[in-house]
């Protein structure tokens, strides 16, 4: 919608892909993470995106904030090697220091480098 409508369509994180393109054209090293499977009450639907650069800047989300830190960390390796990776996160024990989804869902995230 036009900006002067005073509202923005936020149901799709479409701008994440565009941001990734802009970053790459600026010469930055970029990885794109995509939710490819979910089970149970995972917070973000299949097709949600997170774009990450080698300076650990990011836009978008693949969960409600539960696993972004870990995905950003893994993305650095994908940027370094150029090899895509599938990351799997499941239910976490909220008393443990592991990364996971407190909501009890499971999510698989595909991380690829933007060549």
């Amino acid at each position: 919608m036009a900006a002067d409508a005073g509202v923005t369509a936020i149901s799709k994180d479409d701008d994440v892909l565009n941001e990734a393109r802009v970053w790459r054209e600026d010469g930055r090293d970029v990885a794109i993470a995509t939710v490819i499977r979910t089970w149970g009450s995972s917070p973000r639907p299949v097709g949600s995106h997170l774009a990450i650069d080698s300076g650990q800047n990011f836009v978008g989300s693949v969960s409600g904030g539960c696993i972004e830190g870990a995905v950003i960390h893994e993305a650095q390796e994908v940027i370094a090697t150029g090899k895509p990776k599938i990351l799997e996160y499941g239910v976490t024990n909220e008393l443990a220091w592991e990364v996971g989804l407190a909501c009890g869902g499971q999510v698989h995230v595909y991380v690829e480098k933007l060549d």
């Binding site: 565009n18 393109r21 895509p84 690829e112 060549d115």
Partner: peptide, 29 residues
């Protein structure tokens, strides 16, 4: 993902076409 593919996806989305991006997860093709 190749930049060329991403640009194509963004342009086709802008043009309101109906399409899918298919990724072979094993290889990234």
């Amino acid at each position: 993902m190749k930049q060329q593919i991403l640009k194509r996806v963004l342009a086709d989305r802008e043009a309101k076409r109906q399409f899918a991006l298919v990724t072979r997860l094993e290889t990234g093709e």
